[in-house]
């Protein structure tokens, strides 16, 4: 590669790849859950991208290309960890579970817990306690407001898998937080629980 082609490569990289740093930083933050690790991952991603810039297809989606490098780098670094968590399950059941958990919250006087209480510390603890595959989709979709397709792209998994993991993760988070609110005595006595019992379609209540 001659001096001119080096110059062209550098200019292209600066024009196409570097502006995507904030987007890749968000992906890295979602994957690592740690600011320092995320910064290291972003740096590794851009160094690899620069070294292999010749493999980037002009006109293709640079963000997707960088996301793939970021993801592959992260997974390679965490290869010793298990990434085969079973994530099967019925998505219908997960959404119906959300209704039953609402009923449980109402019956225990904590229906308005998410609006009334500062649950950020408990929420962060609950998110951290999720298995990594579930935590990743929550971070991307619920915290970073990414679409299912974008999360699938960032994680290299099908959209259907994003959905199933997301819905199950939300159920687990709701269970954790409702249990937390009840155990902490945050219930409202004489609240809506007594006045208007919610109807979760007559099914059995979820046991937490």
């Amino acid at each position: 590669m001659g001096p001119d082609s080096h110059e062209m490569r550098d200019a292209e990289f600066a024009r196409l790849a570097l502006p995507l740093l904030p987007a890749i930083a968000r992906v890295a933050r979602a994957l690592t859950h740690d600011a320092s690790d995320a910064d290291d991952l972003v740096q590794d991603t851009f160094l690899k991208a620069f070294r292999h810039w010749s493999t980037f297809v002009p006109g293709s989606d640079c963000r997707r290309w960088l996301s793939a490098i970021c993801r592959n780098t992260f997974f390679a670094q965490r290869a010793r960890e298990r990434w085969t968590t079973a994530v099967g399950g019925d998505m219908d059941l997960e959404t119906l579970a959300a209704v039953k958990l609402h009923a449980l919250a109402r019956e225990n006087g904590v229906e308005d817990m998410f609006a009334r209480l500062d649950l950020a510390p408990a929420m962060n603890n609950a998110i951290d306690a999720l298995d990594p595959p579930f935590r990743d989709v929550v971070r991307l979709v619920d915290v970073q407001d990414r679409k299912y397709e974008e999360a699938a792209d960032a994680l290299g998994i099908p959209v259907g898998t994003v959905r199933s993991r997301l819905y199950r993760a939300r159920r687990q988070l709701q269970q954790s937080l409702i249990r937390y609110a009840i155990d902490a005595g945050f219930h409202v006595t004489g609240g809506p629980a007594a006045a208007t019992p919610v109807q979760p379609f007559g099914g059995p209540h979820v046991t937490t």
Binding site: Q43, F114, A115, M123
Partner: peptide, 23 residues
């Protein structure tokens, strides 16, 4: 409101300028 609570819990600003300089 549960989803809003999740989003609030992770509402941290991401200042990428120091990271950009480092990269």
């Amino acid at each position: 409101v549960f989803l809003e609570a999740i989003q609030r819990s992770g509402a941290v600003s991401l200042d990428v300028e120091p990271l950009r300089a480092r990269v």
